[in-house]
Simulated scan of single mutants.
Amino acid sequence: MSVSPRMRRLAETDPAARDLIARLIGRAVRGLPRMRTDAPGGFVFTMRAGTAPDGRVDLAVAPEGTSLRYAAIVALGARLLAPDEQRAALGGDTVDELVGALVNRLEDTGPGAVTSLGDVALICWAAAEAGHGKLELALARLAAADPAGGGPVFTVDAAWVASALAAVRDAGGAPGAEEHLGRARDRLLDGLRGRSLYAHEVGGTGLVPRYRAHVGCFADQVYPVQALARVGDDRAVAAADAVANGICAVQGAEGQWWWHYDARTGEVVEGYPVYSVHQHAMAPMALLDLADAGGTAHHLAVAKGVRWLAGTAETGASMLPGAEPGEPVMTWRKVARNDPRKAVRGVRAATTRLRPGWRIGSLDRRFPPVVVDRECRPYELGWLLHTWLAPTSRE
């Protein structure tokens, strides 16, 4: 496997972080075939570890569910592998074959029809990046799923629409795509009006309960940063820069990328869970794309986030299962509070709605972040490959 410019830049910043990412890339190529399903283009929703009779974690993992969205993200990452590596990672398929199966799903108008705007955008994005022959079909489906003046949409979906259309533009364009890209760009820019960061919806309101309408999650920040960086004009890059600077300013002391933010002020509403994919893929993906577009380079923050995986401050344990026989070739998904009802995030959303920055400190003591979620999802490995095997990186 060739060494990308991004991997070389990470090695210059932090050799240990680079070595960790290299190990994860190897695990991704070995682990993805185990996540395939029998359906065309199918990938599981998650792989979950069980518990042995003596109470210890059983490193054998079992698949649960299926996810079209995750398959599209895998395609975005695996396309950067050499053809033989693609077949190894995809259980014998090439990315072109995987994308073809996904685009074919867009033609289904029956009970299994693809209705999620985010799913359609990801499939279109993958088709554009892969140069697939059915890109026009995917683009037409995206235009139908995201009409002009369509009302509020989730921020993540809006960002994926913009990234997909930027990829179409970079692939040579298509009728109507440039106009759609302009609307998608403006929707993201308008979503920041009067705010420091992104909330959970853009283009209007009504999708999110009022008590947490001011809250945006980590994904609501990084996907727009990536999308605006890929759009690439000065105003879009400046907006991406502002959001990236905001989340980097409040990054945890041990490199944690926190989960919920107050979009009005940029303050952290609730930090947990901390997700492995945010540390090794999603934060680097957005920040490196921003640097490529001429925005601020946050290489130290990227490396610091990666290092968290090796031994978390919360548990002292690595988020990478050991290399003993039966290794699940993955990272564990997240570190979370001992709070199965998710009471902390609900209370903090409500209190910060009433008064920004209001935190009830006893919640941290009552619900410590000591629970490790021992599962892994295919998109985590897809974004890992997509992030670190990209062919360019601005110094």
Rank of each mutant, 00 (worst) to 15 (best):
V302Q: 09
A303R: 04
G382S: 09
R348S: 11
R359V: 14
A167C: 07
L389W: 04
R8E: 13
N338Q: 14
M1A: 10
A60R: 15
G31Q: 03
E201Y: 08
T51N: 11
L80D: 15
R30C: 07
P83I: 08
A128Y: 06
G92L: 02
A263N: 00
A263S: 11
F367E: 06
W259M: 14
Y379C: 06
F43D: 00
D234H: 15
S318Q: 07
R141H: 12
M282P: 02
W332F: 13
R27S: 11
P369Y: 00
V61C: 09
L80C: 12
V202T: 07
G91H: 03
R6P: 01
C124L: 14
V202E: 05
D146G: 06
P321A: 01
T51D: 11
V329E: 15
D14C: 07
A171Q: 13
A89M: 07
C124Y: 07
L142D: 03
L385T: 01
L197P: 00
G316H: 09
A128M: 09
V74A: 08
A240H: 05
R210H: 13
L76V: 07
V208G: 06
R187Y: 07
A323Q: 13
S4I: 03
L102S: 01
C217I: 07
V306N: 04
F367L: 04
D339W: 07
